[in-house]
Design a protein around this nucleic acid. Structure first.
Lengths: 191, 191
DNA sequence: CGTTTTCATTTAACATGTTAATCATATTTG
DNA sequence: CAAATATGATTAACATGTTAAATGAAAACG
């Protein structure tokens, strides 16, 4: 059940996240509300990612590409053709986002689609020559930025960071999600 | 000028499942396009963040909050009141997003707004008792999840990761953005 | 074999990210 | 002070994230 909303007033929904952390900030000691906040891990990851991405956005946008479109085109250069589901996994996009982006990229003739004859549910995607030329046009700037980031941060630290990030993913891979048997919203009587 | 915006008729079909195809990248050796891709730093940061956040999303959503709404409410618990611009900085949100979210949170009576009499352009935001109760209702789950993540990953590695992430931000803080003197889109003649 | 179930993808609906433009108020200048 | 400029916040417009539902096709069942 979708949980409507006239698109006018407020709205609910959501996703969510965030959290906590450890600490060295917070007012004093009366009762830290939750925890450091500015040291929350999701926030730290978000800030670090933005610090990196804001550099890549410039050349991408100059070529009319978003970050996600770039991820898809780049992934496609690694395969002669690839099924949509596999592409979603490789480019790390959710199905609905991928669907929309593929529609756009197809209209721009940067990719082509067909269906697997053996299973008409499955879509096969491949990059076009035009798409390849676009990739080649953007790649130099992209590589230069990556090189400068590596130079500034240090190749060693970068490798260590990548290791720690991957280890984090691995550590949480089999962590069960919470039950979610809680109240529905802030209008709950208990509030 | 925004990006593009086709929107036409339907589209495709198909899909794909695991099975065949290669592992993660690189077809063979014909010409490695750009870089490992799956090793890109932005991707690693994105994946790590998602690995963490998907756990927090459950309890937040159960309380009708998105991650960003939670960040704002949590930030507000650290201040008696705060200016909108400062809140944007603390909660790490862009102005337009913050504007929309504040409108919603105000309608839900989770925050209150007024304007600074000395400068009518500036808005002042504060959390309501209802907002505080909501925070208190969500905090336990949030803390429990953070604790479990810390337990699995290790407090030491977590601290090291935070240090590396912060160092990355610092390293790139004064890196100049590219010039962006490139072509406008893929229809450029040079393609 | 027809019905049910599963699967791959897309569409729907809403919230946020992102860049540009607009509005109102303040500040600076001529 | 009036006009120009700067600043804080919001609105506009489009793209993506996110969850749920719908669609169409294949597999499982009975």
């Amino acid at each position: 059940m979708p949980m409507k909303k006239p698109a006018k007033e407020s709205g609910r929904r959501g996703s969510a996240t965030s959290s906590v952390v450890a600490g060295t900030d917070a007012p004093d000691a009366s009762q830290m509300p939750i925890r450091g906040f500015s040291r929350s891990l999701p926030m730290a990851l978000l800030r670090a990612r933005e610090a990196v991405m804001r550099h890549f956005r410039v050349p991408l946008r100059a070529h009319g590409l978003t970050e996600q479109q770039w991820r898809i085109l780049r992934a496609l250069t690694s395969f002669e053709s690839i099924e949509v589901t596999e592409l979603a996994r490789v480019a790390y996009l959710l199905g609905p986002s991928l669907s929309r982006i593929l529609r756009d990229l197809e209209e721009r003739r940067l990719i082509e689609r067909r269906t697997l004859k053996a299973d008409l549910r499955r879509g096969i995607v491949s990059i076009t020559p035009k798409g390849l030329r676009l990739i080649e046009a953007v790649a130099p700037s992209s590589e230069a930025i990556y090189a400068e980031i590596t130079r500034r941060y240090g190749a060693d630290r970068l490798a260590e960071l990548q290791d720690l990030l991957h280890a984090l993913e691995t550590s949480l891979a089999d962590m069960p999600l919470p039950n979610g048997d809680s109240v529905a919203d802030e209008n709950d009587a208990s509030l």
